[in-house]
Design a protein around this nucleic acid. Structure first.
Lengths: 338, 338
DNA sequence: CCTGGCACTCTCGGCGGCTGAGTGCCAGCA
DNA sequence: TGCTGGCACTCAGCCGCCGAGAGTGCCAGG
């Protein structure tokens, strides 16, 4: 177990390094953080911290920088979540108000988060998995061609073309539309399959092929489109990443373009509250020098999706966590209102 | 007017520089491009080209690199469009087939283009301005709450909530839906306002408030959502940009995040065919060291949107132009089919 | 257990010299 | 008139060297 003072030294190192981006030595440490002990003492503590793997030296004659493990300890034990200032809060609200549709909400959120944290922002679209059906619409575009429109309670709209095996009459279509809606509206996606299973039975044999096609498309949409989408912004902030550029930034940009990677990343953060994954904890080559701060957000009590920030492991954790949490709350409110 | 050989020298310089990324001198030029003259002669030609502003030297004792003006001449007079190989064509087709909806088409196109050109790809969503209405749907979500769904012939779907001043009956709604569709389906967006203007007159005074609200929302959607959206991909390719990193890449990333800038860029390319804007021709600070190759694409004979590539001025123009053109064609086909 | 002192290490920046690529110019030749 | 070979010149990049400074580890003393 580390003594109180050693933890204090670690905190000082993290804070200093995050601020200056330079390895921090024992002397400046005592000066800048008015520790009540001498540099020599701090050196001993640093040696101990290095022994335990919390900090490391880039070269023999340089100061120390925190390791992933050091940041971990810092985040878990030493750092709080820094609340935003009230001007910042107002700015958030102003910025998010006035969004016209879901795309707009997500778009604004991404820009906002990127600007607040000066890092890369990632916002997942509200997930369909936990959503309920608000409405299903069937439109006849041609005698044997339908369009299925699915509207969710989160305001998302999905549409699909359906080529029918046989033409379908207007009245039959109206009937189908009515029956379909009476069964699935307000239901969760996961419930839908069992609810519509026996629908074809109520129709003439002639139309059953078409009905089945419609149902198949509906179910497919529910399943397929449950695969999440997300929006990314603030990649220009990567340029403030560090010194040895191409090597640092490249894999990160590549990872960011692989939505699968990001979704996995967000998905793995099981904690519905805030999750911080530091460096190698991301289990991804390209993201081994980045940290991801993410949190669930939702319109009600339940989280429907995640949002977060990707930045260098050397980031201002308290500030970033504060911004992420605040934005998630406001977005939740906006979604609840609409 | 430049002599034939001098143009040939310029072409050789451009090709070499694009390949090697290094200033090219007279000696290697004669060797690699088996010009039938001596280095000394080439030196004279180079001096002339520099005099005219087509090439420049980074330092006194270095080779020459093309200027924006040099690239311009190269693109206009010296370079053709390099057609893709047939494996590449097949790859395009395979990659684009199987897209399920518009988002998917655009997403695949962006990835494809980025991969093909190894540069940043930009794809504009099919514009609504030239589109026609395929269907308008009105859904009663609550007694005094409607959802308007607009479906375009390009497969795009827009939805809007409408809060009604007064509840509206089911039959009135059906009537409105029918009248609305009979008037606007198949019409261009620009025609719609005049076509629906007198619609409220056909209804009871009680319902006119609601009807007006619906129409207002419809027109608003047509206008507002005419503002274009676009998708970007392949930003990781920026890391192969050049040497002096942060300064080069940063403004480009920033410009790419400003959709307004990009839309303006694509919009300014009036030529429905291929447009190449080189360096400062972009009239944008951050993009002064990039070139933009763009082309319109569309489902029929008419271009409904643009797509293109953003890369360093030092890019393989013939190859890039070939890829951009080919992708645009295939996307057009895909859109026409759906 | 803390502290001051001391010797040691290693990075970084500046300086000088060398090398090589590339140039411009000139005189000669077709 | 236009091409060519020759030649002197320039300058960026590289290497090696050195000194300064920052930071460390260790030790002996309070």
């Amino acid at each position: 177990m580390l003594s109180e003072r050693r933890l204090e030294v670690l905190r000082a190192i993290v804070q200093d390094y995050v601020g200056t981006e330079e390895p921090v030595g024992s002397k400046v440490l005592t000066e800048r953080h008015n520790l009540k002990v001498s540099p020599a003492t701090v050196r001993n503590d640093m040696a101990a911290l290095e022994e335990e793997g919390y900090i490391a030296q880039p070269h023999t004659s340089a100061g120390r920088i925190p390791t992933d493990k050091g940041y971990r300890l810092f985040v878990d034990k030493l750092a709080g979540v820094k609340p935003l200032s009230s001007p910042e809060r107002r700015a958030i609200q102003n910025f998010l108000d006035g969004a016209v549709d879901l795309d707009d909400v997500v778009g604004r959120t991404v820009r906002l988060l990127a600007q607040l944290t000066r890092q890369v922002a990632v916002v997942q679209y509200p997930s369909l998995t936990r959503s309920t059906v608000r409405h299903v619409e069937l439109l006849a575009l041609a005698p044997a061609r339908l369009m299925l429109v699915l509207i969710t309670d989160t305001g998302r709209v999905e549409q699909r073309m359906i080529d029918c095996p046989a033409p379908i009459g207007e009245t039959v279509l109206a009937d189908l539309r009515a029956r379909l809606n009476s069964r699935v509206v307000g239901q969760r996606f996961t419930e839908v399959p069992s609810l519509v299973q026996d629908l074809p039975d109520a129709f003439d044999a002639d139309d059953r092929g078409t009905i089945s096609a419609v149902l198949a498309t509906l179910l497919e949409t529910l399943v397929e489109e449950t695969e999440e989408r997300l929006m990314i912004g603030g990649t220009a902030n990567l340029t403030r990443f560090g010194h040895d550029f191409p090597l640092t930034i490249r894999p990160v940009l590549e990872a960011l373009e692989e939505q699968v990677v990001l979704l996995k990343l967000l998905g793995e953060a099981k904690d519905p509250g805030m999750t911080v994954r530091i460096g190698h904890e991301n289990n991804h080559e390209g993201l081994s020098s980045t940290s991801v701060v993410s949190v669930g957000y939702g319109s009600g009590d339940e989280a429907v999706a995640k949002l977060g920030v990707v930045g260098p492991t050397r980031m201002d954790y308290p500030g970033t966590m504060g911004a992420v949490r605040a934005v998630a709350r406001y977005v939740g409110q906006i979604l609840a209102e609409s």
